[in-house]
Design a protein around this nucleic acid. Sequence first.
DNA 1: ATGGCAGGTTATACCTGA
Length: 264
Amino acid sequence: MRIVTWNVNSVRLRINAARRLIRQFQPDVLCLQETKVADEHFPTAPFVKLGYPHIALAGQKAYHGVALISRLPLGNVERPTWCGRRDGRHLMATLPGGIEVHNFYVPAGGDLPDPARNDKFAHKLDFVAEVTDWFAAHRTPADRIVLVGDLNIAPLETDVWSHKQLLRVVSHTPVEVAAMARWRASLDWVDAVRKFTPESEKLYSWWSYRSPNWAKADKGRRLDHIWVTPALDPALLGAEVVAKLRGWATPSDHVPVVVDLGAD
DNA sequence: ATGGCAGGTTATACCTGA
């Protein structure tokens, strides 16, 4: 079972890259974020043609939006709302065999890392806190769950190009990292990617469009994550960030993250 | 410390991204 997560930054603009990604990586489930399209305009046909007839959407016009695109039937599809907003940030579904998949697009949080003066940052912290409490209340570490998405937080010092220079930059501030640690602790989630890439190694999944030479400058951040519950830890076969997609023509600023789960 | 780019919108300026 292979699950791929990707902040596509407009699914319509990236449809050819999505086709290429699918052909190369053959995911069973593709989880997209920032689709930026209302559900009635989502380009489902290319995915159906490639063998992915099971599609769940939580989109809206222009902003945010997540999608589950699957070879396998999706059961119990839900589109939860957080912070009272139906803004296309979360889809959940159950795969055949019982694994539950969650696809998240966490609010970016704006510029100023002060919830008292920046509503977007307050929203980000509230969103993570609500989701954390939900998992703690409604699921257990014995449940078989995969959580993926653009979580918009780089937790480790090696998840950013410069820990010191990003301490006050939204995505790597101590308050966000602490919020993410609480989320991780809610079900004792395993960071699947860091299971296979040591924490001592720099690892990024996002490079700003504003850096003209992203590969050489390499000022990235690891904002895209795949977590599994302890029940699925023994099934983890591998996980990796596919950095090469940042070098494709008209790329997203995020690259996909892949996880492989064995029979369980 | 700043600015740099990309995508979308009843656009040609402004919001969002992070």
